[in-house]
Design a binder for these strands. Structure first.
Lengths: 139, 139
DNA sequence: CTTGACCTTCCAATTATAGGAAGGTGCAGG
DNA sequence: CCTGCACCTTCCTATAATTGGAAGGTCAAG
């Protein structure tokens, strides 16, 4: 099948498939006589794997490692577990970070009258000292 | 003061201060005879504002708007509120997205034995159909 | 034979930040 | 005085992942 068909079947855009090939994430597949790339079900399966991993927020570097494990029939599930666990850890960290930001924002937003007057606790909060950062000179 | 001093006092790196100037986020400040940029407390205040906004995850485009409002003494707090509320909405959306990802990952990870055997529910989960995506041909 | 829908490659933009090269400036110590 | 060091300047490059476009080749249908 052509790249467009593989793209639709995998959920990975043709643009990205070419890119993944260029950076060596997937193999330089076979070409037809006209130079068009040719894909089969196996390729689509691999692309779906990539797509799923992307959807779970894995970076391309991590996906590269995951693909290596996926292709390796003598892999240890331990290695996969480690990779995924590390990723989950980062995600949980990011969630906590965002929740802290959201809480701060919510406080500021709730304190704001949201009317025609210029006074605004949000702007005051932003212009104040930034907690958690060390300045050379006191705030 | 010189750019390095302003950088330390604001928590914005000298590199970034120059960049913010280049993209017009902050004004092209005065220069000393030797060509060095010169900053005062007001500039540092503005940089801290930027820094705080960045810490809350505002994009530079949003910060540009926030700065305009901050500088505008005849602003409406409504406009600030709207901007911040939209940002908070996006953050909440992102949190939910990450929580969904984390839940999926946690399920996969917990199902994995993490030993020397190759069987791995994580890889199986990744190679399966990607929920929420329409394929041309059934999974 | 033209039109339209594919495909090809290459180049550029996005976002925010960091790193380095190459060179000028200014102060302090030997 | 001269040297070294710490600072400043500009300009170019890179990162991560994706998207967009231009310029051109291929193919099937009308």
């Amino acid at each position: 099948m052509q790249i467009g068909t593989a793209a639709n079947a995998s959920g990975v855009s043709a643009k990205m498939i070419r890119h993944y090939e260029a950076i060596g994430l997937i193999a330089n597949g076979t070409r037809r006589g006209n130079g068009y790339r040719d894909y089969d079900e196996h390729d689509v399966h691999e692309l779906r794997f990539i797509r799923s991993a992307r959807d779970l927020g894995f970076s391309l570097a991590e996906i590269r490692a995951l693909l290596d494990l996926w292709r390796d029939r003598s892999r240890n599930s331990r290695d996969v577990h480690k990779l995924a666990a590390r990723h989950l850890f980062e995600i949980d960290r990011r969630i906590i970070e965002l929740q802290s930001i959201a809480a701060t924002l919510r406080d500021l937003i709730e304190a704001c009258h949201a009317d025609a007057r210029p006074e605004c606790p949000i702007l005051i909060g932003l212009s104040g000292p930034c907690p958690g950062h060390d300045y050379d000179r006191g705030a």
